[in-house]
Write a protein that binds this DNA or RNA. Structure first.
Lengths: 209, 209
DNA sequence: AAATAATTCAAACGTTTGTTTTAATTCAAA
DNA sequence: TTTGAATTAAAACAAACGTTTGAATTATTT
């Protein structure tokens, strides 16, 4: 799946608009205007609005867990350290590609049997497998508990990150952090999330119930 | 805010369709057809599609945390028990009104300054206040830790529940639970979620880091 | 330089959109 | 039973939608 500069411009503009206004709430005319390209170019390059959405997923979903995979193969790291680094990595990755993840959440709520859902599920299955490798390792070293529901663990991790993403304005307001500039606040919630999820992970993986 | 039978029929049909296909993905003609009412009735009763959405939120958001409030005032319960019951209550409530919560998640991702977002934030503020009461009580009784980020705790609770709601098909598949019928599976994930979140809550509230 | 392919563009296509209009009908109070 | 308001129904509205067309332009190949 190779995209030229113009296609990438369209993809990233569409991604931004889909994230902000939803797929059905964004018109192809709006995308064309915002990307400074002609209306027909979208059909020309991608075939349709639907296929443009699929292209966004192909563009983003592939090298998503590349860094995590290399993590697993590093035998100098303890499973506990690996899980900590996993948390850091996932939070940073989602923060970087916030627009895309907003689209993914919306898509997951609606779609059931389309191509995009299939892509998401394939990616999810791969991620679970990678994390399971770390956990199995930790169990063999008697560091982790025997019974661990990996998908549930991932659900709490991703769910917490997404929920923070969607309600960060409220979180900021409650904690009276309006004085912080946007960058500082984003940095702050990343740190908070990382510490929070690492604590939760240790409970689930190590401590007794 | 009083609605007659016909209005409620429209509201609940619209809720179901908005949850399944999104606000922009659902046409007023579709709602009218599905609810067996005339197209013009929607404008007649609610003014516009936008106001229909607002009506759904007014219809659902009010008595949402009614049960939880009575929980707080019951002085025969320990704060720990109260938090356990809170988890049960929230999971049951969201499960019951799944369609509405799907709409809410989608709305949160997009909306920034509209009436619906204001309604959601007001509700959230009230909920945080109620939970804070329980937690303060637990802290005074030296049962809970001193520093607790209540909004963050709620974010993990709600985020985990929502993420399970959105990815339950995948969860079912990974755990090979396709043989269970829908009701049994729904019951199962509720139990799993309840135990899971109670464990997490105890870590955050009681245990040392 | 000529020919061929790839891309850009404005205009138009037929649908569908949310909403309004206007007339018919139902219903309750006088 | 008459009167007036509330409700229902079908038709019409302009605007916006995704997509296609065919000519103009640019780029690549021969």
């Amino acid at each position: 799946m190779e995209f030229n500069d113009k296609q990438i411009e369209i993809l990233e503009t569409a991604e931004r608009l889909f994230a902000a206004k939803g797929f059905d709430g964004t018109s192809v005319r709006e995308i064309a205007k915002e990307a400074n390209i002609n209306l027909a170019s979208i059909s020309y390059y991608f075939g349709s609005k639907e296929k443009l959405m699929e292209a966004i997923f192909n563009y983003r979903i592939n090298n998503a867990w590349f860094a995590v995979k290399t993590l697993v193969d590093d035998h100098s790291l303890s499973p506990i350290k690996k899980m900590d680094m996993l948390v850091d990595s996932v939070i940073d990755r989602i923060s970087e590609k916030e627009c895309f993840h907003r689209i993914m959440v919306r898509q997951q709520i609606i779609a059931k049997d389309d191509i995009v859902t299939k892509l998401i599920n394939e990616s999810r299955a791969r991620n679970i497998e990678i994390i399971n490798e770390i956990i199995r390792d930790g169990q063999q070293q008697k560091l982790f508990k025997k019974k661990i529901d990996t998908p549930l663990l991932v659900i709490t991790m991703i769910g917490t990150i997404y929920q923070m993403m969607n309600t960060q304005d409220f979180y900021r307001q409650v904690h009276k952090l309006e004085s912080l500039d946007e960058t500082a606040f984003q940095h702050h919630i990343r740190l908070v999330l990382k510490a929070h999820l690492k604590t939760i992970f240790k409970t689930i993986l190590i401590n007794e119930a």
